[in-house]
């Protein structure tokens, strides 16, 4: 993004603390509001974005591909989907049930990943601005 654009309705004063304002942490602007431009380019925030992307991009592509495969096979490979697997239960019904199972697995994996990898990083980013909010 271009930082040259004028920011709307927010004072353009850069948010860097001086020794006169000991309560201000780095990423808060002159009015004590979070300086979003500075946060957006901060190392901690970029690390958070990378971690988010590392999970949701492959996971989303994976489950969509798996779902579309199932739908296409159901539409165009009915023969294959009707192959019996055990008793009267065929490939299609099993695959359909597995869609539900994988949904639960991905959900739990994301929940676990968030708790371990994302939430602590969110707290780190929030700490960049929180000093001031708490004192205010």
């Amino acid at each position: 993004m271009t930082k040259a654009l004028p920011s709307v309705s927010r004072p353009a004063t850069p948010g860097f603390a001086t020794f006169d304002e000991p309560h201000h942490s780095l990423l808060i602007d002159g009015d004590g509001e979070p300086d979003f431009d500075a946060i957006q380019t901060s190392e901690d925030f970029l690390a958070l974005k990378r971690r988010v992307k590392r999970f949701i991009l492959p996971a989303t592509l994976l489950f969509l591909a798996w779902y579309v495969t199932f739908v296409l096979l159901s539409a165009y490979a009915a023969e294959f989907m009707s192959t019996p697997l055990f008793g009267t239960v065929n490939v299609g019904l099993t695959m359909g049930f597995l869609q539900i199972v994988t949904t639960v697995i991905i959900t739990m994996a994301y929940s676990r990943y968030s708790k371990r990898q994302l939430d602590p990083q969110v707290d780190k980013v929030r700490a960049l601005v929180e000093t001031d909010e708490e004192l205010a």
Binding site: M1, S7, R10, P34, I39
Partner: peptide
């Protein structure tokens, strides 16, 4: 609006 976009992205994630 770049400033609003920064705010939305930071706010959305954190």
């Amino acid at each position: 609006d770049a400033a609003k976009q920064a705010e939305m992205e930071v706010r959305g994630l954190t």
